[in-house]
Design a protein around this nucleic acid. Structure first.
Lengths: 334, 334
DNA sequence: CTGTTAGCGCCTTCAC
DNA sequence: GTGAAGGCGCTAACAG
């Protein structure tokens, strides 16, 4: 009946007219079907079909103050560490009619502020950060904003709002404990330069008790940089027995370089990674690593934010998901 | 002066009052500084500082019909193939004050329609798809919408709107040509089940001239599945000499499994991948692969969409970026 | 260069 | 259960 050429997209007003009800009734039939009569609801739904109506969520958000968008901020999309988290976050939000706005900081505090400002302008119902918010100014602004903020992949006594993650210091000390138990003495560290990797190094050193030659590689952590790191460490530490790496890809590079130099792993050189990437479990030798439940971080972040939006906030602001060490062939004989 | 407690966030109205100008002048001072007087601009900027004003882009978008958001849709974030594209897309959009809304289809046509509908409700100024839009219904809807749509990582005679990519058929036939030139005879294919990988297989078979044993692995393509695929292919093709893989990670799995079985690469078994992942260049042996300029796809997509928004659209709707084969150690002696 | 007027499309508040 | 106003925050379109 109202099948005009779609010169102008249909608005709720058109739907209401087609259904013979008022605008607000049409709105309720779609947004809160329980409170209108069955008959009305059906007629409105038919009118939606007939008009090809697509709701404008921007307009809805303007009045209702709920944009149904969540900002998700990563250092860079190429940091594969965070991908499972972003994936489940996006999927869980989608289930509830929320969408993710993606931003990248490139490990730069200034860009972080810029990206956060850009996100905030879009009135997100929540903000999920991979890592802690670096800039103190940004932390302060976010606090004032009264928007749920979830920092992830780290732990803090003083989060902006909520935090889901684990202690990188403890990961480091757990690895040091493992190295000690294995009896390694001349060791090295190959690490990315980001805050979290450096925290793991700190934790390692604290438990290890003395300084350790360290090759710091710029982001992103690639296989090639792992290879170069081994070269550097072997020069600096004669008789190198074991290397702790800040990612599985760096560890992979160490394995490749070790083989190229004729070193047997783990007999001549032991290697550990971080992140439990899929490939590490199935290589030969497989890579000893630290596992963190990345997907769960994303799911939990989504739910914490959506609960806040619904007003069913829990008091718990710190969620420590822990980690565990997975011993594999790169440090131990099968 | 107006440093009240931030009970209500400042609006442009507050800024205008603080600056002693009208609302619209304040709007122009921020959105189009060139057309107001220097003095006015400075006063408005000071008022912004004083009030802590943060623009509400939702409200602006409602009136101006420009949301300054672009939808970016991937099969899944874990498909690392697309990451460089999404990364540059997001970054290029950010430069111009646009943000990316992220969606995932999980290779499912129904979810694709769902995600597109959700995105469209947010009034994006453009839509970037990784891959072609599958569902015919969704294609038709997108056409009506009069929103710039860029399909990527593929080529089509009949894109919804614009397409940036290359021909997967040609990639396949190029690989077959290479296999023929190398003199391989008993070969196999290990491939993901997605449309693009299957197109490469089709192209390969067409140029190869006869059927080839194929191990189809479910998404995502992992190292483990590569290992399993080699087992399957060796059973089905005695004397296997070479395997074409649909991704570098699958090829990596083949290499691992080959070594585990005591096969030398490339002497006993040659392997090719796809995507030119960083690790493939630096492993030993390095992986022969097909390179595609993923970052450029993202940049170009961003610019095509932003040009359309500015009305400076070019007539070219198909952008074939091509590809090239990179010969490395997994098929050739150094 | 600046201001007034009139909405964008929807949802909240209050009536009926 | 339904409806009539009014306004969310901002910006096009005209005027001055």
């Amino acid at each position: 009946m109202t099948a005009f050429l779609p010169t102008k997209p249909a608005t709720l007003h058109d739907v209401a007219k087609a259904a013979g009800v008022s605008l607000i009734t049409a709105s309720r039939a779609l947004g809160n079907p329980g409170i209108v009569s069955e008959k009305t609801r059906v007629r409105v739904e038919q009118a939606v079909e007939a008009t090809g109506y697509i709701p404008n969520l921007l307009a809805g958000g303007l009045k209702s103050k709920r944009s149904r968008m969540v900002a998700g901020i990563v250092p860079a999309l190429s940091v594969s560490q965070f991908l499972p988290t972003v994936q489940t976050l996006t999927a869980a939000l989608h289930e509830e009619g929320y969408q993710l706005l993606l931003g990248q900081t490139f490990y730069d505090a200034e860009r972080e502020e810029e990206v956060l400002a850009a996100m905030v302008s879009r009135q997100p119902d929540g903000i999920v950060m991979m890592g802690l918010v670096q800039s103190e100014r940004a932390r302060e602004r976010l606090r004032r904003l009264r928007v749920p903020v979830v920092e992830t992949w780290d732990m803090s006594d003083r989060p902006v709002d909520m935090v889901i993650g684990f202690s990188h210091l403890k990961v480091g000390s757990a690895l040091a404990g493992y190295f000690l138990a294995q009896g390694y003495e001349r060791i090295g560290i190959a690490t990315g330069s980001d805050h979290r990797a450096m925290q793991r190094r700190e934790g390692f050193l604290a438990a290890w008790g003395r300084d350790v030659p360290t090759a710091v590689v710029p982001a992103p952590s690639t296989l090639e940089r792992g290879r170069l790191a081994l070269g550097e460490l072997m020069e600096r530490q004669p008789g190198l027995q074991a290397v702790m790496c800040s990612s599985d890809m760096l560890a992979h590079g160490i394995l490749v370089e070790a083989r190229a130099r004729g070193l047997r792993v783990p007999q001549d050189l032991a290697v550990t990674g971080f992140g439990n990437a899929e490939f590490g479990a199935h290589m030969v030798p497989s890579i000893t690593t630290v596992h963190v439940d990345g997907p769960e971080i994303g799911r939990l972040a989504a739910h914490l934010i959506m609960d806040r939006c619904r007003g069913v906030a829990s008091a718990q602001t710190r969620h420590d998901l822990g980690f565990h060490l997975i011993e594999r062939g790169s440090t131990a004989q099968p």
